[in-house]
């Protein structure tokens, strides 16, 4: 089962339009939503959660169509937003007590275990936490009510490298269940590269591509050579080129190149930057 299915999702917000987004997140997978600031990542997530009203399109979450307002469905979704949003005066202990009344399937032992694992002080008010600690508190809640879908908006951005690594392990463990899925947005592309099975690139409200990560890395490569060597290539194979004082560098489609052409692997970050530049050049 797909944990998320989005078809032609459109939202106009004055000077910004999220334009006919279509993507799916299969069960047991992690989808990374990549985009520069203002690309529409948070708008997409807010639409999925029903925090904004869509203009057009359909959203199905855990098999239920247009259930953004469905409170029962929200029992199964764990969310951490960029601004975590917990009341500042509540300690983790008090937050746990509050959530036990809000979620029917609240797991106090799991919550306690996560708070300990994240080294958060049980009696320290949320407002005294650092950004990373706030994120961890949000994650502890998101992972303590038997959620099947995790939606994380820039959740790794405030974490130090060790905490980020720990988080990535927790997320990997979460998707070992085939019914679970994670949608994670970030502009720290290296995190998503390590973690995700699917990648979606957003740019100015449009989905540049949505693809399996491994396939993307197989499909694209970086060609480095002289200007004349580059010009000899099939123009259809060249997605974006850059001329430097030392030669040329181009993002290319591997299967359109003549056999034997030397191509370096491309990272997701490079791929994203090149595709955005190409889009801007057009």
């Amino acid at each position: 089962m797909n944990t998320i299915e989005v078809r032609n999702l459109t939202k106009n917000r004055g000077d910004f339009t999220l334009d006919r987004l279509t993507f799916t997140l299969p069960g047991g997978c992690i989808l990374g939503l990549i985009g520069e600031n203002g690309a529409g990542k948070s708008t997409t997530i807010k639409l999925l959660l029903g925090l904004l009203r869509k203009d057009e399109g359909t959203i199905a979450i855990l098999g239920r169509e247009n259930g953004e307002k469905d409170t029962l469905l929200k029992e199964e979704i764990g969310v951490v937003m960029d601004e975590v949003g917990m009341p500042g005066c509540l300690t983790p202990a008090q937050t746990g007590k509050m959530m036990s009344k809000i979620y029917r399937s609240w797991e106090p032992e799991r919550y306690k275990e996560l708070i300990q694992k994240f080294a958060l002080l049980w009696d320290k008010p949320f407002q005294e936490f650092s950004k990373g600690m706030k994120m961890k508190q949000g994650l502890a809640v998101a992972l303590s009510h038997k959620s099947k879908l995790l939606i994380l908006d820039e959740a790794t951005s405030g974490l130090d490298p060790v905490a980020r690594d720990e988080l990535l392990d927790i997320l990997r463990e979460f998707v070992t269940d085939e019914e679970h899925g994670i949608l994670i947005s970030s502009h720290i592309v290296s995190d998503l590269e390590k973690l995700c099975d699917y990648i979606a690139f957003l740019h100015k409200g449009k989905l540049l591509l949505w693809e399996e990560k491994d396939r993307l890395l197989e499909e694209y490569g970086i060609f480095r050579g002289s200007r004349s060597q580059l010009e000899a290539l099939d123009p259809e194979a060249v997605c974006h080129k850059r001329v430097t004082p030392y030669g040329t560098e181009a993002l290319v489609l591997r299967d359109r190149l003549p056999r034997g052409t030397e191509v370096s692997p491309v990272s997701i970050e490079e791929l994203f930057v090149q595709l955005v530049k190409e889009e801007k050049a057009e």
């Binding site: 925090l51 409170t71 969310v79 601004e83 009341p87 809000i102």
Partner: peptide
């Protein structure tokens, strides 16, 4: 605190 928005993600 952003609670109102966060509350929209809770049941």
């Amino acid at each position: 605190s952003g609670w109102n928005q966060y509350c929209g993600t809770l049941p």
